[in-house]
């Protein structure tokens, strides 16, 4: 059989930016104007980073607050190591830390059965914010908490962060 490479099959869609899906406990970084998407955030948090100078962007979908508690070699699963990883990966593409801004969504407390203390959603948000602060990256937009799920799209053409929910209007951060 002939070997076909990517360029032969990929023909028409020039205008629409490529969409790249980010699953739970995964991250993606783009430097070529792709739109990064992640869906179904409940108590999970979607952390988007955008380089205001170069237009590079990254998105991570974290599930639990602290890697130390349950270390299993999947840094993108946790709020602390996931945020760090995303910053480092953007730096690896040439971004400078001071050019990065952050937008986050998720961390709802729906179906949190834990009694007393703050739930996983809250702790995820706190951990993400703490980590961003530690790297001096400013948080310029957030749609967090409440008791509903969210999906997000980070458009690296302009840094817009679109938040969609099942039962309410879309919001752009």
């Amino acid at each position: 059989m002939k070997v076909y490479d990517g360029s032969e099959t990929d023909s028409s869609q020039e205008e629409e930016p490529e969409r790249v899906k980010v699953g739970i406990a995964e991250y993606e970084v783009t430097t070529d104007s792709a739109t990064l998407t992640t869906s179904g955030l409940g108590s999970c948090v979607g952390v988007g980073l955008y380089d205001t100078k170069t237009g590079a962007a990254g998105l991570v979908h974290v599930m639990l607050p602290v890697a130390e508690e349950m270390d299993d070699g999947k840094p993108a699963k946790f709020a602390d190591t996931g945020t760090e990883l995303l910053i480092e990966e953007l730096e690896a593409t040439g971004s400078r830390r001071r050019d990065l801004v952050a937008k986050i969504a998720g961390g709802s407390d729906m179906l949190d059965f834990s009694e007393g203390g703050s739930g996983i959603g809250d702790r995820n948000i706190d951990k993400v914010k703490e980590t961003l602060e530690g790297y001096n990256i400013s948080l310029v937009g957030e749609d967090v908490g409440g008791d509903h799920g969210r999906s997000v799209q980070l458009k690296s053409v302009d840094g817009d962060f679109l938040v969609k929910s099942a039962n309410r209007d879309d919001r752009t951060l």
Binding site: G40, G42, C44, L64, M70, I120, G149, R150, N167
Partner: peptide, 26 residues
Amino acid sequence: TPPRLVHDMGQAILDPLAAQLGQHQR
């Protein structure tokens, strides 16, 4: 517990439950 009504995206319904278990199991 008494039932809690949910009406949302499937994945968003599941992730808080998986996260609560995920504090103790991989």
